[in-house]
Design a protein around this nucleic acid. Structure first.
Lengths: 185, 185
DNA sequence: CGAGTTCCGCTACGCGTGTTTCGTAACGAG
DNA sequence: CTCGTTACGAAACACGCGTAGCGGAACTCG
């Protein structure tokens, strides 16, 4: 009963939030301005997303895209390609900062952590299937644990970007794949 | 020339900040309250640390301690011990949240990222020496790259805690060490 | 058409961060 | 001891986040 929500408002706000996020990053993102750009009252935004963090995560989820992996049939090449693709994105300072803020948001609000997880692990599950097929082809040992392998491939990437600050060049990505695969053949 | 700063103020504020950080974590940390507890004006705090982030990092740096690694002579045991020690700390939700916020602070202010890096990498360099000595003993292959090995050991830990959310039990730590060492022997 | 419910915008408020300005008191140099 | 410099404290301000209350308008149902 009663008046339904204007779904156009959700779309307008998310669109404005995406633009603002791209232009100024998380730090420069002001909820007031997102509302103003969407030509909507601030209170109306709060009626849909209970906090800035929630809105930012929702906006990020709609602009997060992963290029599909082109599978060549050679695990080494496929994994290297996946890693360099991830690395290329993380190298951008803006992306790096946004990722850090999103992770922090995910620890502040557990439900946001839950919402973000599928986004992060999307490429990860694709890579897991890559490994499964390589095992089926006999390219990798049958006892290879895809989850562990991927943690050892992707983990160091995020670790370097977020924590140690070491560079993540393509040479590093190749070295990761090489040493990891050597164990399972 | 002129009046010198009261160094007791620095100590009092840092002490109050540490206590507040332990009690309420980063989110519940209010600079006003830290100043009040130190019986100091807010402006005085800002004269020493230009932002909440700076104060928190400074306070964290003084309460970050790493238990020294007891070296048994068996690389596998030593590395497993180091990893489980790191994992034990990271498993605490409070620590997890603080680490996430500190990383975000490090991306907002590059100088804070620089200040934090030595803290994170302290255990890492200790582990690197562990590996160096193992190589010298002939326990590991001479071509083993300590930096790469450690990235593959520690990276997955942080990756799971901060991103994938997967559990980091001691079994996982053992598996990491096992598969990594198997490659270099 | 009328009644009830819900949405939307507006205003006001409390809180925390960070800046600025001012007056006062402490210290060092001559 | 006096003077110039600087630290400290107090107050006011701007800004962004988040909450609450109100009035008007839109929509649904009987």
């Amino acid at each position: 009963m009663a008046r339904p929500r204007d779904t156009a408002v959700d779309a307008k706000v998310l669109e404005a939030a995406r633009a603002l996020l791209r232009e100024r990053g998380y730090a420069g993102f002001a909820l007031d301005e997102a509302a103003a750009r969407a030509e909507v009252a601030r209170t109306t935004v709060y009626r849909r997303w209970p906090s800035k963090d929630h809105l930012v995560v929702a906006a990020f989820a709609t602009m997060f895209e992963t290029a599909p992996i082109r599978e060549t049939g050679d695990v080494r090449a496929d994994l290297t390609g996946t890693l360099t693709a991830i690395a290329a994105g993380l190298r951008l300072p803006a992306t790096r900062a946004l990722v850090a803020e999103l992770i922090a948001a995910g620890t502040r609000h557990p439900e946001l952590g839950d919402a973000l997880r599928p986004l992060w692990t999307q490429r990860r599950t694709a890579a897991a299937e890559l490994i499964d097929r390589a095992v089926a082809r006999g390219e990798l040992a049958a006892d290879a644990d895809p989850a562990l392998i991927i943690d050892q491939l992707v983990g160091p990437l995020y670790y370097r970007v977020l924590i140690s600050g070491d560079p993540i060049d393509d040479c590093f990505a190749r070295a990761l794949v090489d040493t990891t695969l050597a164990r399972h053949r």
